[in-house]
Each structure stands twice: as structure tokens, then as C-alpha cells.
């Protein structure tokens, strides 16, 4: 029987880590520019976070504390699976508390709690090219970035306004980074875009299938594209979180019954739990004893 090889710390071999690390350093030096890298085949499917996993695997060390979220939650199955992967291959400490994490890998959300200096936010990215749905060819979009030719994107947004009276992009809303590159923030709701601007944390983006890494250094301008007469605006929810009463946070809609009953709760589960632990309560919060069961 063939003998199976054993895996290196954090799964990737050292040569691969060096290649990804070099790409990360160049990505930081050219904010918002997509650095091509020789993405590896990972033991999880493309589209499920292979880019983010490769970035995390290349930066993580024994001293790190890792948090993994999907849709803002630590307990969604893909987040659970990726967290378990790193516990297995890197024996790393994990947490659900945003403030305790040194590395946060995320899909589709930025935590509500403001990130701090020294923290790294790693985004899983499906399609890194903000112009891809306007121009499917890489050879063309690369030229547009080279020439800083972003007219197509403005035309698209303007057509939205003409047709719908407003910009109808609600997530993966394009941003301009450090005044030069137009960048896809990954499919986070545009609600989260302002958190990217002048963040104290380093933001790294990994797209495994598309083989691109990009970055936003701390304290960097990240401006959502808009028009003078149609300024960028984020989603607003009419009610607070039904569990913790938080306002000004992103909410998930939970369907309660088949009669149209629904409630809205925090998408960031850690933020919600932390508030409840500090005595905040929404109108649907079960009494403490019941909730523990």
C-alpha cells in the first residue's frame, strides 16, 4: 500500500508559503491591485474559501488567535469547517470574540466591532475583478486597470440610476483604494464598505480559483464609487436587533412561521452575544434560563 505523506504546519509547504508571502507584500505595496499568484489545489472546494485559507495559512503562526466567520456568524457550517481545519493543521488557538482575534477570516461580512491595530482581516473572495461582470475578459480588464480607465463602471452605476432611480448594487459594491485602483470588496453588503476606510487593521483578500491576492493597508482611503447628485448610502434597518436591541448594525431576517411572521437579528453573532452578556435585550430575547437549554 502506498504511504501517504504527512502535512506541514498550516498545510502548505514552505515554498508555497514563500510564494504567497511575496505576493502579499507586493499587494500591500500596491493597495487595491490584484497580484496574480500560483494558487494551489486545496483540500476544500474552490469557491469555499480556498483563497482566504491560503492567505491565512501563509501568515498564521503559533502565537495567533484565529476567528472565522461566514455571514457574520462563527457557527455557520463553512466557518466551523475552516476553523476546524486550522485547529487540525496548525494547532492554533481559536476564538469567537472579535477583540481577542489576531487573524479574522471572513466571508461576506466585516465585524461590527471596530478592528484594531495589529489585527488582520482575511477576506474570502469569489470574483476579485470588479469589472468582470461588465467585461468578462481578463486581458481587457487588466488593460483598464493599467490605464486607470474606469468609465465602464461609472456608466453601469449611472444606468442603474436611470433605470431604477438609484444605484441598485447592494453588495460587492466597488470602491476606489488610495485614489488609484477600483477594487471589489468581496460580496460584503455595502453596509460594510465604510468600515474599510481608514481601518486600523490590515485587510487581505484571497481569491483561490481566480488566483489573485490583494490588500488594503491600515489607514488607507477606501471610497465607495458614487455621483455628486447620487451619493453613496448604506442600508438602514427600521428596527433594532430582536435579541440584543442593537441599532445601526446589519441584520438577518429570520422567518418565524408560515403566516408572514419574521424578525430581524444581528448577523454578527459575536457582537450580539457580547451585547446580551452586557445586559442588552431585544424584544424577542428568551429569558436567560430558557436560552441556556
Amino acid at each position: 500500500m502506498t504511504e501517504l505523506a504527512t502535512y506541514n504546519f498550516a498545510y502548505l509547504d514552505e515554498q508555497t508559503k514563500r510564494m504567497i508571502r511575496r505576493a502579499i507584500l507586493k499587494a500591500i505595496a500596491i493597495p487595491g491591485y490584484q497580484v496574480p499568484f500560483a494558487s494551489r489545489e486545496m483540500p476544500m472546494p474552490y469557491g469555499w474559501g480556498t483563497g482566504g485559507v491560503q492567505v491565512t495559512a501563509s501568515i498564521i503562526g503559533p502565537e495567533d488567535v484565529l476567528k472565522v466567520i461566514d455571514q457574520g456568524a462563527d457557527d455557520t457550517t463553512n466557518a466551523v469547517s475552516i476553523r476546524a481545519f486550522f485547529q487540525k493543521v496548525a494547532n492554533v488557538a481559536v476564538t469567537t470574540h472579535t477583540k481577542d482575534a489576531t487573524i479574522i477570516q471572513t466571508r461576506h461580512r466585516i465585524p461590527e466591532q471596530q478592528l484594531e491595530k495589529g489585527q488582520v482581516l482575511v477576506y474570502q473572495v469569489p470574483i476579485p475583478e470588479p469589472l468582470r461582470f461588465l467585461e468578462p475578459r481578463e486581458t481587457e480588464t487588466r488593460k483598464m486597470h493599467a490605464l486607470e480607465e474606469y468609465g465602464l463602471m461609472h456608466v453601469k452605476l449611472y444606468e442603474d440610476i436611470a433605470r431604477h432611480g438609484r444605484i441598485s448594487t447592494t453588495y460587492a459594491y466597488p470602491v476606489k483604494v488610495a485614489g488609484r485602483y477600483v477594487m471589489d470588496p468581496s460580496p460584503t453588503p455595502k453596509f460594510d464598505n465604510p468600515k474599510m476606510h481608514m481601518s486600523e487593521a490590515l485587510q487581505l483578500f484571497g481569491a483561490g480559483r481566480e488566483k489573485r491576492i490583494y490588500a488594503v493597508p491600515p489607514y488607507t482611503d477606501v471610497v465607495s464609487l458614487d455621483f455628486e447628485d447620487y451619493p453613496f448610502e448604506i442600508q438602514k434597518f427600521e428596527q433594532p436587533c430582536a435579541l440584543c436591541g442593537a441599532q445601526g448594525v446589519y441584520l438577518d431576517e429570520v422567518v418565524l412561521d408560515d403566516k408572514g411572521g419574521r424578525m430581524f437579528v444581528c448577523s454578527d453573532t459575536d457582537h450580539c452575544e457580547d451585547r446580551r452578556e452586557h445586559g442588552h435585550a431585544g424584544e424577542m430575547l428568551a429569558p436567560a434560563k430558557e436560552a441556556a437549554e
Binding site: 504546519f9 514552505e14 508559503k17 508571502r21 507584500l25 500591500i28 503562526g61 503559533p62
Partner: peptide, 19 residues
């Protein structure tokens, strides 16, 4: 310890480039 030392130095470089 090549695995851990290169990781440690890289993190300094990453932080250095980011700041």
C-alpha cells in the same frame, strides 16, 4: 526552526509594509 522563524520574520515584514 525554518518553519516558525520564517513565519515570524514574514509577519514583521508584513506589518512593516502595512505600517
Amino acid at each position: 526552526e525554518p518553519v516558525f522563524h520564517s513565519q515570524g520574520v514574514f509577519r514583521m515584514l508584513m506589518d512593516g509594509m502595512a505600517r
